[in-house]
Simulated assay, not measured.
Amino acid sequence: MTSSADVPVTAQLWRRVVAEGIGTGLLVTVVVGSGIAAANLSNDAGLQLLENSFATALGLAVLILMFGPVSGAHFNPVVSAADWWLGRRDRSGLSLRELTAYVPAQVIGAMAGAVLANLMYGEAAVSWSTTSRSAGHLWIGETVATAGLIVLIFSLVWSGRAAIAPAAVGAYIGAAYWFTSSTSFANPAVTIGRAFSDTFAGIAPSSVLGFVFFQIVGACLGTGLVVALFPRVVSTTKSGVTS
């Protein structure tokens, strides 16, 4: 992912919004589609998770490279919100208008991405997930996963290392599938999208609100850590890339 300040000024808002919608949709297609494929290929839960996480890590890195020059490749409402909040003083991040355009596009794109994955594998277009993920230890996992993602993205951007963000963010999400109890959704839009598929990567609609709440908590913690630990020694208006 990239900071909005790294997006060329020639990228009109509507183009950026379309890129965010398509990018988030394709991310959910990767997550859900690889989950369905993994369940079809293996009966072992550990192997299924390995296949799902590997495909997601690679797919996310590619999507950031693809859409980053247009929209910053946030694909994530809490990343967009953090970009707005951290950049509001020097106007290096999203404006409030841009934020309110990005978030609906990300959510709608995520829902469409789940439908696409379902259809590609011969499933019903919408099959509400029955996988309950409502438990305290999972919420802790989501808080940790989201906080870590925010710290990673903005520490790279603020230190002038944004060019390595596609690989770094992909690697982090791939690893977080394994080291967090929740398998690291870390994204409210993706969480909503995954509720549309009763497959390996799904989450029951009744569990969505809890995940989203603790993703927001994690984003707030991560934003606070960025401010405390990484003084902005390099202006994002002069640096290059961010998820």
Rank of each mutant, 00 (worst) to 15 (best):
A124K: 11
V227W: 15
A38Q: 06
R91T: 05
G59K: 01
N52H: 14
V70F: 09
V31I: 15
S34F: 06
V157Y: 04
R16M: 07
L119S: 10
I153N: 11
S184G: 03
Q215I: 06
Y177A: 06
T237N: 10
A101V: 01
W84F: 15
L63P: 04
A101G: 12
G136Y: 11
A186S: 11
L65E: 08
R133D: 03
D44T: 10
A38E: 11
G222S: 08
R89A: 15
G122A: 10
S239L: 12
P188K: 04
G72V: 04
S53N: 07
L86R: 08
L50M: 10
R133Q: 12
T183N: 15
F185W: 11
A45Q: 12
V241T: 09
I216C: 10
E98Q: 15
G193Y: 01
S132L: 07
S155D: 03
G202T: 03
T180G: 03
V208A: 09
T130G: 12
G160E: 11
V169Y: 10
K238A: 13
F230C: 07
T183M: 10
P231K: 07
G202K: 02
S243I: 12
I36G: 04
R97T: 14
V79T: 05
T199F: 08
F196P: 00
Q215S: 05
A37R: 09
T131C: 00
W178D: 09
S207C: 02
T24L: 08
Y102M: 09
R88K: 13
N76W: 09
Q12S: 14
S129D: 06
S132P: 00
G193W: 02
V144C: 04
W158C: 00
L116C: 04
A73R: 06
V30I: 15
V126Q: 04
S4G: 15
A167S: 12
A162P: 00
S127W: 00
G122P: 08
S184V: 04
V7G: 09
L149S: 03
S159C: 07
A195R: 00
V227P: 04
G87V: 12
S206H: 09
D198Y: 07
V226P: 04
V107D: 09
A165R: 01
T56I: 01
S184Y: 11
G224C: 06
A135S: 15
L96W: 13
V190R: 11
G23N: 09
L99Y: 02
G87I: 07
A5C: 03
I153Y: 03
Y102W: 13
P69R: 10
F185N: 05
F230T: 09
S95H: 10
T143C: 13
A163N: 12
A5T: 01
F67Y: 13
A228E: 07
H137Y: 15
L41T: 05
L26E: 08
